[in-house]
Amino acid sequence: MKHSILLVEDDREIALNIREYLLKRNFLVTWATTGFEGWEDFRKGNYSLAIIDLMLPEMDGFTLCQNIRWESDLPLLILSARSEEDDKVRSLKLGADDYLTKPFSLRELEARIESHLRRYNRYLGKNEMEESFIFLDGLSLFPEKRIVLLNGIEVTLTNKEYSILVLLAKNPQHTFSKKELYEHIWEETDNEGNNTITVHMKSLRAKLNDSPKKPKFIQTVWGTGYRFIGELSNEN
């Protein structure tokens, strides 16, 4: 089976060299030139690994890396002309698996890709059971089937409401700003004064019977955004 690689690189010469090299080694390669294009390709495709440049237009590599990690355990390999330790540390803390400084050899890039793919395949082999999240207070999420239950009764959510809930529930330690939520889920740059997240959050909370004043699932962090506070039950 061919592995599919997402390459997000705005330098045409570098991208074409990587793409040609990987294609000759039997990889499938999707090439994006901006951060938002890369994010859109990730949401639409099914990839084995992503190679991401840090200095990207529209959405930088740090933000793209963070967005992908909120959704997936896909191996992330960062490319950058910047060799500063702070950039490497920031990338790794955001969830990147590796950091390769430009200029680099294509043989080394290939070796690192193969190493990460071996580890990821072993990880997938250990996690073949369907993912589910069972929380106290009656909330259950089944992402594979896109089902949400509250006290055993299915809750009908819009696609955006569902995406907000799953994103928050999968990342309970992170407080999401409205800007992060909007750009992650709508895949567009957030405009100042945009009230979209507030409206969707109000509707989502109403469907979950979750009072903003005494939340069981979604807590408002005043001046910052929202975070998920639901407690997992022992059934997980």
Rank of each mutant, 00 (worst) to 15 (best):
D10K: 12
R12V: 13
I14L: 13
R19F: 06
E20R: 02
R25Y: 09
N26A: 06
N26G: 08
V29G: 08
T30F: 14
W31R: 02
T33D: 02
E37G: 14
E37M: 14
F42W: 07
F42G: 12
F42R: 08
D53E: 13
D53A: 03
M55K: 08
L56H: 06
P57W: 09
E58H: 10
W70R: 02
S72M: 12
I78D: 08
S80L: 13
E84C: 05
E85V: 10
Y99A: 08
F104K: 09
S105R: 11
A111T: 12
R112N: 10
E114T: 14
L117R: 06
R118Y: 15
Y123P: 03
Y123E: 07
L124Q: 03
E128L: 14
I134C: 07
I134N: 02
F135E: 01
L136V: 08
L139C: 00
L139K: 00
V148S: 04
G152A: 12
V155T: 06
N159A: 15
A169M: 04
A169L: 07
Q173H: 09
F176K: 00
H184I: 03
I185G: 11
T189V: 12
H200I: 07
L204D: 00
L204M: 05
R205S: 01
K207V: 10
L208G: 08
F217Q: 10
T224F: 01
Y226W: 14
N234V: 10
N236K: 01
